[in-house]
Design a protein around this nucleic acid. Structure first.
Length: 188
DNA sequence: CCGAGGATCATCT
DNA sequence: GATGATCCTCGGT
């Protein structure tokens, strides 16, 4: 179980430290292998233009979930990081499935284990994360985070799928991990 | 392997 | 009316 101290550091550092942590929901468990940081002064961040009904959870206590709906089809899952009111979060972009893989396959309607959680919308579907999880504390409860294992070598690069702030190297992943999204990513 | 295009809707201009 | 922190299918190479 993660504690408050885990989040008492800069968001970019938390984004790195979340790699190797486990996300748990019911019988399903996945190891975080890819993250992206979104800072308060970052034009790509939902919090950039201030608090609204949609992004309110992002301004909540560190360690809470920020879930939002995008592209008419998908949800994305973030972990709030900065102190309350600041508006920073880490987008969870990929998991390595560890437990409950059969259930993940059913929810995703796919058999290929590599395709279950290798993208932000995919892992939300596989882990059955819903809007009702928005604003909930991830240090306790049914959807929660567990402390990191040794994650291997971490590398960073530009973020994916955004138009603003592209140049910022705020994407982090475990080098060589097969479950990272955009698997063509070269080993560095 | 890669790129283009469609699905689909809440939010903002 | 346009856009978006995405995913999937299809067609070309």
């Amino acid at each position: 179980m993660l504690n408050k101290k885990f989040f008492e550091r800069p968001t970019l550092e938390v984004a790195r430290n979340l790699l190797g942590c486990c996300l748990i929901n019911g019988e399903c468990v996945g190891k975080i292998v890819e993250t992206e940081a979104y800072l308060a002064d970052d034009p790509a961040s939902h919090s950039f233009r201030g608090k609204t009904a949609r992004n309110a959870a992002m301004f909540g206590l560190p360690g809470t979930a920020y879930v939002y709906f995008v592209y008419g089809n998908h949800y994305c899952f973030n972990v709030v990081t900065a102190p309350e009111g600041v508006g920073e979060a880490v987008l969870i972009r990929a998991l390595e499935p560890l437990k409950g893989i059969g259930l993940m396959k059913k929810r995703r309607r796919r058999e290929d284990v590599l395709q279950l959680c290798n993208g932000p919308g995919k892992l939300v579907e596989a882990m059955d994360i819903k809007m009702k999880n928005n604003g909930k504390n991830l240090m306790e409860g049914s959807l929660r985070l567990e402390l990191r294992a040794v994650p291997g070598r971490i590398v960073s690069c530009e973020r994916i799928g955004i138009s603003l702030g592209k140049e910022l190297p705020h994407r982090f992943f475990i080098n060589g991990n097969k479950f990272v999204s955009k698997s063509k990513t070269k080993d560095i």
